[in-house]
Design a binder for these strands. Structure first.
Ligand SMILES: [Mn+2]
Ligand SMILES: [Mn+2]
Ligand SMILES: [Zn+2]
Ligand SMILES: [Zn+2]
Lengths: 138, 138
DNA sequence: AAATTATTTGCAACAAAGTTGCATAGTTGC
DNA sequence: GCAACTATGCAACTTTGTTGCAAATAATTT
């Protein structure tokens, strides 16, 4: 019997290894986004730091996860919901950062509004970050 | 005769020192936002790395500059236009990141559109990042 | 199922980025 | 100009990220 995780990896032409499975598990288990440091802590001594870097790198390239910019020098990563692929991501949703618990959430149902740019600027991607207090922390 | 820069510092109850003046100069001279690394390079051997860190820190606290989140672990800093103060910033404008030249621009005239959040989420701040090609790089 | 091939991992060594304590230098207010 | 205060540079350190390479593991072939 093949698990959901194994399938996800194979579908992306990735060999199925312990670290990849474990890191995907973490993403599936966590509500919000994860920083590199989070993953390192949660996988504990199981994997080398370098492996975590390389795994995230590969997942990004394959469109399995996407990045969320932050203002504190610690990129967050979250699973792509839709069918994002090698080059093309379709994560046009808003990201919410709770100032109380620190969690970053993908608001998958909140679409980023369009915005008019000054003449001369050509946009290829819009991102929206919202700071505030999340559901659990009210 | 007092310069614009000296005044800005005094108005914020900061002592007027070489590094602070130089770093403010840099911000005033540059079109876009600056990363810590940029500043370090441009100030050359004039100042210690630690001084740059501490200066940016102070400017942030005083509301002289604001941060711009990025997806590459290198926060950008830009001068606050309006009267931002100690605690309260009013930089509700869109930030544009050119994928060609790498420059980050404050689009001071482009206001961030409001967006409805799911029940339970309370927003305190909205940020918007746009990637694309800037005026000069077309 | 064993052997071959290809890929991934951990380790070591390193580079870059960021932090802290403290003596010295510089700035401010009188 | 002097005393009080504040900022700076330096050193030492931690944390974060990168690279090359040999050993381990996974996929593919026979
Ligand atoms: Mn997301
Ligand atoms: Mn700005
Ligand atoms: Zn929260
Ligand atoms: Zn440009």
């Amino acid at each position: 019997m093949e698990t959901q995780i194994d399938n996800l990896l194979k579908r992306n032409q990735l060999s199925v290894t312990g670290s990849r499975k474990k890191i995907l598990e973490l993403f599936l288990a966590s509500r919000g986004a994860l920083a590199h440091g989070d993953i390192e802590k949660k996988t504990g001594e199981k994997f080398d730091r370098v492996t975590v870097y390389r795994t995230l790198q590969v997942f990004l390239e394959k469109g399995i996860i996407h990045t969320i910019p932050t203002a504190d020098n610690s990129i967050r990563y979250a699973l792509c919901k839709d069918e994002c692929s090698e080059g093309h991501h379709h994560d046009n949703h808003v990201h919410f950062i709770c100032t109380t618990c620190g969690n970053t959430t993908c608001l998958a149902d909140v679409t980023i509004p369009e915005v008019k740019l000054p003449v001369g600027f050509k946009a290829t991607e819009f991102q929206m970050l919202v700071n505030g207090v999340c559901m659990e922390c009210q």
